[in-house]
């Protein structure tokens, strides 16, 4: 079984279903549009901000505000890429064609990850430039210290969210169950717990909190986060790897 053949096959699969197009377009549109909106609001609010808020004003991070919602579309993309196979019964046809389950999973994830990365990078850069345009005189430039890292990091963050979702969906198989766990987790639980003092120290190590650190250029006042931008992304990568290993082990052992 040549891996190249399976990669080609997975590319045909991913480009031939509508869900790929609508989830990814939604991620692009929502991330950029919401980022622009919030950037525009920040500009009009800037003069009324306290001095402290002005000092820690992070124009780069603000232009990524749309990702909080846009990442949900990336989660749906990641979940559907994998769980489509199970919900349609296609998985049996697929595994009969490619009985090497490791190769099958690798090819599927590789294709979806590369596609996700291209879309996420483009989205991150677009969100940055359009967001900065909205910020007017308060804008940051790509050449500023740490800004390029944050923009590239934004693309990596979105990609990793999708890959994490693929790993979880490989473990859980059902699209409803996967979305039912991932969406509330990233959209509600993670952010709510972030405001509770007792759980703050734990929440820092959740994938989205740790990963989004890379998009910050100006850290908030009194920031005592125990890791840097790349350290945070590293923590997120560990989460992703754990989900992928879990998915691989289960796929390998389970009856299809």
């Amino acid at each position: 079984m040549a891996t190249v053949q399976v990669v080609r096959s997975e590319w045909t699969k991913i480009r031939s279903v509508a869900s790929t197009v609508w989830t990814l377009s939604l991620a692009v549109v929502v991330t950029i549009a919401l980022g622009m909106l919030i950037s525009a609001l920040a500009r009009s609010e800037f003069d009324r901000m306290s001095t402290q808020d002005r000092i820690t004003f992070d124009p780069t991070f603000i232009s990524f505000a749309g990702m909080s919602l846009g990442q949900l579309a990336m989660i749906v993309f990641g979940v559907l890429v994998v769980s489509n196979e199970y919900s349609t019964g296609m998985i049996r046809t697929s595994l009969a064609a490619v009985p090497q389950r490791g190769t099958f999973l690798f090819a599927k994830l590789a294709v979806a990850t590369v596609l996700g990365l291209v879309v996420s990078m483009a989205t991150s850069f677009a969100a940055f430039f359009l967001g900065q345009a909205m910020l007017g005189e308060h804008r940051a430039s790509l050449g500023d210290d740490g800004v390029l890292r944050a923009v590239i990091g934004g693309g990596l963050y979105m990609t990793l969210i999708a890959v994490f979702s693929m790993g979880v969906a490989t473990m859980l198989r059902s699209p409803m169950l996967s979305l039912g766990i991932l969406v509330p987790f990233f959209f509600l639980i993670s952010s709510i717990l972030g405001y509770v003092d007792a759980t703050k120290d734990v929440v820092r190590f959740l994938p989205d909190h740790a990963g989004s650190r890379i998009m910050q250029v100006v850290p908030p006042v009194g920031d005592d986060t125990p890791y840097g931008p790349w350290g945070g992304l590293g923590i997120m990568v560990l989460w992703v790897l754990a989900a992928l290993v879990g998915g691989y082990v289960l796929l390998k052992r389970r009856d299809a």
Partner: peptide, 18 residues
């Protein structure tokens, strides 16, 4: 064993390629 959103041709094509 087929994805309902995929055309018959593409369904067979992805299997053939693999």
């Amino acid at each position: 064993g087929a994805h309902p959103g995929r055309s018959a041709r593409n369904h067979l094509l992805c299997l053939a390629q693999s």
